[in-house]
């Protein structure tokens, strides 16, 4: 009965060899982590200039000079820019720079220089319209993309007894909806915007549509997964009362999905605020337009101010979103 240590070790080894494992997952993980960390070995870094490396355009880094607030710059004897601090001038410069985005409560800019519209408000407006449109787009796709509803797995046997043709059609519709959602979400909003801008020209609609398609795809996926995770036994009792399949789905599932729907809605809205800004790079008038413009003209002092302004609304959106999500359900893990 009693085994000696060597025998035990043999037993342990054979147990370890026969341990259940998921090779696909193991390999996938190993490959993923390996490539993430290993890619650094292949990075072509010139150790003398670790960051600049092989620059394709040899730019003299004038960043620090140009990052000095314009009104505080003075040339020294050598002809280089030097920062000369003056609190009053600094605030005046800051106020006027901010005012150029349309945020000018103190009328710092003369009327003819004042921009027509407030870039921060535009950014928020774009993000709101985008997320509303995204939610509207996702709504008709949620149930057809939820396996348990689309393929009738969650319904009573009587309801599942459909013709072979309907079953085939349902399978096709399910696959098509899933595919549509994958395409919608896997293409970045920026690329969508780029395509629409070529097609429509520089109008806000292009940006809204781009954000809406990408986020609609994500919302559709998250919400349909939520429906798939639902225990629909209680819901399907409704169909025993004679309700049709569609009304069961709408009445029984809609209200139960609502809290999670809102959580995802606000989560994606936060992302929308962040992404709206970069559409400015494509000449859609959000705060990012001012950032891109300042960079293009090497006005790094103004670029930094605009970036910080953008940070403020992104963080603001974050706080609002987090607070709302926490209210909806205690806590808000986004790792969906």
């Amino acid at each position: 009965m009693a085994m000696n240590p060597a025998e035990r070790w043999q037993a342990v080894r054979s147990l370890r060899r026969d341990a259940p494992r998921d090779r696909f997952l193991q390999m996938g993980l190993l490959l993923f982590v390996g490539l993430c960390l290993g890619s650094w070995l292949f990075l072509d870094v010139d150790l003398r200039h670790p960051i600049t490396g092989k620059s394709r355009f040899a730019v003299k880094p004038t960043f620090l000079d140009d990052a000095i607030p314009f009104d505080l710059r003075h040339r020294d004897e050598a002809g280089d820019w030097r920062l000369v601090w003056d609190t009053g001038l600094f605030w005046r410069w800051l106020g006027r720079t901010v005012a150029e985005t349309g945020l000018d409560p103190f009328d710092l800019l003369p009327a003819e220089e004042r921009p027509r519209s407030n870039a921060l408000a535009d950014t928020l407006a774009l993000s709101v319209l985008a997320i509303v449109l995204a939610a509207l787009m996702s709504l008709p796709l949620i149930l057809p993309a939820a396996k348990n509803v689309a393929l009738l797995e969650a319904f009573l046997p009587a309801d599942r007894d459909v013709s072979r043709l309907e079953r085939t059609l349902r399978r096709l519709a399910f696959a098509a909806t899933r595919g549509l959602l994958v395409v919608m979400r896997s293409i970045p909003e920026f690329i969508w915007a780029f395509v629409f801008l070529i097609a429509f020209g520089p109008v806000a609609l292009a940006g809204i549509l781009a954000l809406a398609i990408h986020n609609g795809g994500i919302l559709g996926k998250l919400d349909s997964e939520c429906v798939e995770d639902m225990d629909l036994r209680a819901t399907r009792a409704l169909s025993a009362l004679g309700a049709s399949k569609n009304s069961v789905a709408l009445v029984g599932i809609g209200p139960r999905l609502m809290p999670q729907f809102l959580v995802y809605f606000f989560y994606r809205w936060e992302t929308c605020v962040r992404e709206t800004a970069i559409l400015g790079v494509l000449a859609i008038r959000s705060i990012g337009f001012h950032i891109d413009h300042a960079f293009a003209q090497f006005q790094y002092d103004r670029a930094i101010v605009f970036i910080l302004m953008n940070s403020l609304i992104v963080i603001g959106g974050d706080l609002v979103g987090t607070a709302v999500r926490r209210r909806i359900r205690g806590g808000g893990n986004l790792a969906a």
């Binding site: 620059s55 394709r56 880094p61 960043f63 990012g288 950032i291 670029a303 953008n310 992104v314």
Partner: peptide
């Protein structure tokens, strides 16, 4: 929250301005 609030495109513009268009940036 602050690091996150600046979009990667803007980080890229900043780094490009600082160091040039290296892939490391």
């Amino acid at each position: 929250a602050f690091l996150r609030s600046i979009h990667e495109i803007f980080w890229a513009l900043l780094f490009t301005a600082l160091f040039g268009l290296s892939l490391v940036c």
